[in-house]
Structures are given as C-alpha cells and as structure tokens.
Simulated assay, not measured.
Amino acid sequence: MDSFTDFALNEEYKRFQSVGDKLAEIEYLVDWKPFRPILESMYINRTASGGRPEADVIVMFKMLVLQQWHGLSDAELEKQCIDRISFRKFLGFPEYVPDSTTVWSFRKRIIDNGKEKAVWDEMQNQLDALGLKIKKGMIQDATFIHSDPGHAKADVLRGKDAKTRRSKDGTWTKKNGKSHFGYKLHTIIDKDYELIRRFETTTASLHDSQVDLSEKGEVVYRDKGYFGAIAKGFAATMQRAVRGHPLGIMDILRNERISVKRVPCERVYAVTKEIFKTRKVLVTTVERVNAKMLMTAFCFNLHQLRTLKTKGVI
C-alpha cells in the first residue's frame, strides 16, 4: 500500500474513531502474532493439506472474529470487510480482502487439521500472561444450540442425497417438557474473571453430566443436572430430591448458596446468544458447530477482557 493511500485511509478512519470504535478496543487485547505459526502450519506443502495460503492467515482469522462478533454470513462478511472502515482498520488495511470462498476454505482447513485446540490453548496462555490465571472456583454449565430439524422424522438422520437443510449430526432431546433439536455448548468459566476457560460441543441429546470440564484441584459449581456425576475437581453440585429422600433444610440452603455462585454462567450464555447470535446455527455437523463455538468463546473472552480493562483489572 502506497503512503498516500495509507494516509487517506487513516484520515478517513479518524473521523469514525471520534464517535467510538469497539473493534479498536478489542484489537489490542490479545497478541495476534503467536497465532500465525499455528495457522500457517496448515499450509506446509509436504502435508496432506498442502498448498500456500491465498491471503494472510491473521487477516483471515480476524475475519472469523468479525464474522462471529457481528453474526454475518460468509458472503456478507466479505462485503462488510470491503465496505466498512472499522473492519478494514481491524484487519490492518490489507491490500487484499479474502473473498467468501477463501474464508470458507480457511475455516474448513482449521477443522480438517484439528487446529481448534491449539488456537484455544494460545488464547488461554495469553489470559494467564495477563495475570488472569485460574484460581479454585469454576462454574460449569451447558446450553442448547438449536439447528434446523427439517421435515424428516426425528429418528432419521440426513442422508447424503437429502434435499433438506436438516442437520446431519443434530439430535432431539427434551427438557422440562420442551423439545430441542441440535447441539449443546458445554463451558466452564472461572469464578473470579468470568472468562471461558474450556468448552466442548456435543449433540443435544448428550446429558450434561456426561461432560466434565473440571481439573484436579478446582472447585466446580454445578446445577442439579450434574447430580450424581463424578468430577475431576471438587464437585460443588446442587442436590436433587429422589424417591424416598426429599431434600432437607441443609441441602436446600446449600443449593441456594451454589445457585448464587453460578449466576455468572447465565450472563455468558446471554452474551453468546444475543450478541454473538448463536441461539441457532445453520451448519450441519458437530465439527462445524464446534468451529463456530470456538470463535464464539474466543469473542466472548475478548468481550470480557474489554470489560475487565474498563474495570481496571488488567
């Protein structure tokens, strides 16, 4: 980019910045450079994935952040990254904005190469480096991520030749008498900073108690859905009445204390669903939903880091 063009873009952005730019606030909350070797390793020619990246991997990764932050389709993401000055500034004013097909291929390559964990681990390392290390108190919960059930019967998975948007891996389940179809996002957050520290994506029918995200030495607060399930950490799980064994006053009071401690997890799901638009997904497999949940959790942590910075914690 020539100096005149660079000057013109920055002058144009200054006018927008004067009225407030949230993207500018989150851009410097993480160091993007350590993600480069993780993402560029997907393009080593001697591997099965092969090929060279068509665009800068950090630009494409930031585009995935923008997509989740604003709830955009691939096609709309491309348009907005070309049109909006705040988006272009967040991307570093690249000379080339990847098209929607390139972004789709980049996301698929992350899935095919299993890079979700490495990306997430780098995020966690940076949180620790900011002094936000996990202490003892953790809160685990799960929420439904709905998908389109289509018109087939509930026990029929989508076939390769199906002409419906029915989710391939989604499953049916019931909770409190209400049917849900799709997937589940399981998360565990630290009680001190309310950051997502671990997550897992499953189908909707898998019971909450089958997923344990706690680690040894952690106190993990859980609701009645985890009653009877063993945790790797110290389980502070709400008690549930069973036949012939009603809850006593001590159990009721204990449940109330745990319930109060679990309040922050409700905010996590409110933000992820309302701000980052994950109440319902159009992708059709667990792997693709998990990639979407990776970016959702990544964006939530950026959102929470911004809050912590405002409060003077970091």
Score class of each variant (00 low, 15 high):
1 M>R: 10
5 T>D: 05
6 D>S: 13
13 Y>P: 09
19 V>Q: 00
23 L>M: 01
25 E>N: 08
26 I>H: 04
27 E>D: 15
31 D>P: 06
35 F>E: 07
36 R>E: 07
44 I>S: 00
45 N>W: 03
47 T>R: 01
51 G>L: 10
52 R>G: 03
52 R>M: 07
55 A>E: 05
56 D>I: 13
61 F>E: 13
71 G>F: 09
73 S>A: 01
84 R>V: 09
92 G>I: 05
96 Y>S: 02
96 Y>E: 02
98 P>S: 05
99 D>G: 03
102 T>E: 09
113 N>C: 12
114 G>E: 10
115 K>F: 05
118 A>H: 13
122 E>N: 07
122 E>P: 10
123 M>F: 15
137 G>Q: 07
143 T>I: 08
149 P>A: 00
155 D>S: 11
156 V>N: 12
157 L>R: 15
157 L>N: 15
157 L>E: 15
161 D>W: 14
162 A>K: 11
165 R>W: 11
171 T>L: 03
173 T>F: 01
175 K>R: 11
181 F>T: 04
183 Y>E: 10
188 I>Q: 04
189 I>P: 02
193 Y>G: 02
195 L>S: 03
197 R>I: 10
197 R>C: 05
200 E>F: 15
203 T>H: 06
205 S>Y: 03
214 S>K: 07
214 S>N: 05
215 E>T: 15
229 A>Q: 10
238 M>S: 09
246 P>T: 02
253 L>H: 09
258 I>C: 00
258 I>T: 10
264 P>I: 06
268 V>Q: 00
272 T>C: 13
273 K>L: 02
274 E>H: 12
278 T>Q: 14
280 K>W: 06
281 V>Q: 07
281 V>K: 06
285 T>N: 10
286 V>I: 14
288 R>I: 14
290 N>C: 14
292 K>D: 15
295 M>N: 03
298 F>K: 08
305 L>S: 03
310 T>Q: 07
313 V>C: 00
313 V>N: 02
